[in-house]
Write a protein that binds this DNA or RNA. Structure first.
Lengths: 233, 233
DNA sequence: AGGAATTTGTGCGTATGTATC
DNA sequence: AGATACATACGCACAAATTCC
């Protein structure tokens, strides 16, 4: 009979801290105990704990400041952890906001790729603005198994923050396909390209920290008022 | 008077190894000496060298195999280290190739952002194909200070491989802006959208390992035959 | 097939440097 | 200036994976 090898302590420690953060027991800006104290409490050598902390820093969950301390980084930083891609005004910049138009639990659409365990998904439709100007519409499908219910009132500008704070997972990897596509019929009045007109189109498949695909989304943006920006590495 | 602090040994060691690889003295697949031997040669503790090796592994330049050794990973893997973004066929996949149309040393264009020290740049124009079908044209401006001369014969499908192998630097970060733009007049016959017609447009600014901006490029792709794909994280 | 040798991975403890408070 | 706290570096012991004989 084969037994699974015990994971290394530094991984166990890192996962423990990640769960603490995800569960909200460690919140934004909070300073952790000194490394030596934490190590003693957890029964680890300082070097072992330091390796776990380095992992968390790599994930962007922690800021380590020499001579000061280790700080939880849990803020809704648009351009930071969640800045996989963004929309910008053609001349750069622009303050992004999002307005949730509707939320519904429905069967996943046929054209969506296989993702998640559930047959249904939470469909979230949003209007996105830069400096108050509508520049894009968005349809997001979150796998139904990830939340019993998604209430419109719970959603803020950052959907990914909601995932982490309320649903206990986070988006670790994404793959975006950018092309052109006609604007769908549900586009609200006020969004520049009329339904049927050609717009920039982003199809995204997003995975959580364990590599599970949890979300499929489509964004239609007006090329006259917005650009898709991807910063890499 | 202030003196610059000496960099940590693990960084010095990592940079030394990176230069060895870039200079070709360590080539693909080659196995390094055992860690303990290398550490002794370099006058370092094993742990210090191991940190340098871990850095290289993080950059994808090294593969570390427990019980076996450390192996140089220097292959021209299109989707690997240099796969910042790629063009794909609408249904996915497609074998990418590139045909260099022209190379010239010219003053940088006015619409390019500030990058590099030189007033001039090497302008490289390419036709890109997927499965042999022309899907995009590309105009790349490499800062003139980075190479005395760029000969068309030296360029292979992977421009970034040429940078690393022949010019001694590599692209570490990129920022892509994707929108729509008319196809320029120099587009060769055989490229689907005619000059003046609207195409997908990617403007890229690329930085080397030291954070210096070295390259500005524009790509026009046919949305009917290709999609821009960005995988992140 | 199997065991020994080799090589990297994990973990510990400690000393010293350096930034912050 | 002193205390605190993280960063670097060293050396060692043992575990686990691979390779060699």
């Amino acid at each position: 009979m084969s037994t699974r090898p015990t994971p290394p302590k530094y991984l166990t420690a890192a996962e423990f801290l990640i769960r603490e953060i995800a569960a909200g027991r460690l919140s934004d800006g909070e300073r952790l105990s000194p490394e030596r104290d934490m190590a003693a409490e957890m029964g680890l050598a300082v070097g072992t704990l330091r390796r776990a902390l380095a992992d968390l820093e790599g994930k962007g969950l922690l800021e380590r400041v020499q001579g000061s301390g280790n700080y939880i980084r849990n803020s809704p930083d648009i351009t930071g952890l969640y800045g996989f891609f963004r929309l910008e005004r053609p001349d750069g910049g622009g303050v992004p906001t999002a307005e949730t138009l509707s939320v519904a639990l429905l069967p996943k659409p046929a054209h969506a790729p296989d993702f998640g365990a559930d047959r249904n998904g939470h469909r979230i439709r949003r209007l996105r603005r830069l400096d108050g100007i509508p520049v894009a519409i968005e349809e997001i499908w979150l796998d139904g198994a990830r939340a019993r219910e998604v209430r419109q009132a719970d959603l803020s500008d950052s959907l990914y923050l909601f995932y982490r704070k309320s649903l206990g997972f986070w988006i670790a990897r994404t793959e975006d396909r950018v092309g052109l596509a006609p604007v769908p019929g549900w586009a609200p009045t006020g969004f520049a390209p009329a339904p049927g007109a050609t717009a920039g189109h982003v199809a995204r498949l997003a995975q959580d920290q364990d590599g599970q695909a949890v979300e499929f989304s489509e964004t239609w943006f007006d090329p006259a008022t917005a650009r898709y920006v991807a910063r890499q590495r």
